[in-house]
Design a protein around this nucleic acid. Structure first.
Lengths: 229, 229
DNA sequence: GGACGTATTAACGTATGCATTAACGGATGG
DNA sequence: CCATCCGTTAATGCATACGTTAATACGTCC
């Protein structure tokens, strides 16, 4: 399920960058569980570098909203409670529909939409195969492709930040819920609205998509346990 | 007009924190103009500290979207073009109305709304006095108070980030536009909707407020100059 | 026996040192 | 006169050193 999918690729080969990438992957893959604490010196030893780049990586993780750094206790991996998921879905419910609207208004060419079509196809195939992990990957591809194409890098970066924050929550609930048939169909409908240049339609479809998905996810989390991953 | 209004106050007395606060204030007040470049060593000398905390501050400014750090040329203060303002207002148009909706749905008590009422009063007073700077301060107070009270710190932090990014743009246009009478009235209307617990109403009023204000601001910027601050 | 004060220590924030590397300028060749 | 190659230099990223401070443990006093 986890398998340390290497986050993107090394753009700049700096140690601080590598430390950030590796630590982020470990947190998202739950290799560093919530509430666990890690000192600069320990991580430096673990990663085979000095405290300086580790320190920089910790700062960036804090900015990412994944850890809290407290002066004497190193960084603490933040738990993800139902309240956090609620905050995150409020943001997603506001920003992602806007991204869909922006993309639709751009009257995107077919090749811009190709990754979105591919992601939809992959989601439908995964659904037929009953492969939840593949579905989650395709879902992620869909949302990332949409953000990349929407033409507003600031908005895209903000969405990706909270998207990453909620990653562990989505992964844990993935196998607790029924196969996401409705969600898959909604993606296709959103894509059709975008392709048709219907900005308002795409935005509202997306808003409903997020609202339903968020409510389901939060209900699921509240039903299973309280304090969280 | 500028007068280096000290950003909040020293929460932690760390040199890196101080460097970040001072540099950010200088950028927002245009003491470090767009496109200007600053090396670590030069800033360290200027701020009376070593390169280490300056480096950290530069990283944080980059995260704030205020500068770009390029390996051999230090940090470069980012210009703010019409395209940036468009991106920023897309984000504000999505997130701030949501914040208003959230606050309204909380059925806030009178003392929670007190800062908002005070800000509205101050805006109206500034309008009568024709004091644009005072109006801008009150406007900022209104928006900040709303975010503080909305109950979603993630959303609030995101708005404040782009709000800061657009600060220079708002300051420059402040004296180029007619007195913001419509805007002042809109704030009052939004506040009334919030006080009435009308989430949908508050959200839509705020969306229109941002859309109109953003369009005006961008038109003003495009009319005056192209590449920017 | 428990609470308070003190000593110890370890984690951190900052300063500094060092090797790397890319930008700049000059010299050389066409 | 212009382009290219090479040497110089300075800015950086990382490593390490150092002083400060807070958390822990111990001893003492009540």
């Amino acid at each position: 399920m986890n398998a340390a999918r290497a986050l993107p690729a090394p753009p700049h080969a700096t140690a601080a960058e590598a430390a950030h990438r590796r630590l982020k992957a470990m947190i998202l893959d739950n290799a560093m569980p919530a509430h666990s604490q890690w000192l600069e010196a320990a991580l430096a030893l673990e990663l085979g570098m000095s405290r300086t780049p580790v320190r920089e990586a910790m700062m960036r993780l804090a900015q990412d909203g994944l850890v809290a750094v407290t002066p004497r206790h190193g960084m603490r991996v933040l738990p993800l409670a139902a309240a956090d998921m609620r905050e995150i879905y409020d943001v997603l419910e506001s920003l992602e529909p806007k991204a869909a609207e922006l993309l639709a208004r751009r009257r995107p060419s077919a090749d811009v939409l190709a990754p979105l079509h591919a992601a939809c196809d992959a989601m439908e195939a995964a659904l037929r195969a009953g492969d939840r992990q593949a579905w989650a990957t395709a879902d992620e591809d869909f949302h990332r492709s949409l953000l990349d194409a929407c033409g507003n890098p600031r908005l895209a970066a903000m969405v990706m930040q909270v998207w990453d924050q909620s990653h562990r929550g989505r992964m844990v609930t993935l196998n607790l819920r029924p196969l996401p048939e409705a969600s898959t169909a909604e993606h296709r409908a959103i894509l059709l609205a975008i392709a048709a240049g219907d900005g308002d339609g795409a935005r509202e479809l997306f808003r409903l998509h997020r609202r339903r998905g968020g409510a389901e996810l939060i209900a699921l989390i509240e039903r299973s346990g309280l304090a969280w991953l």
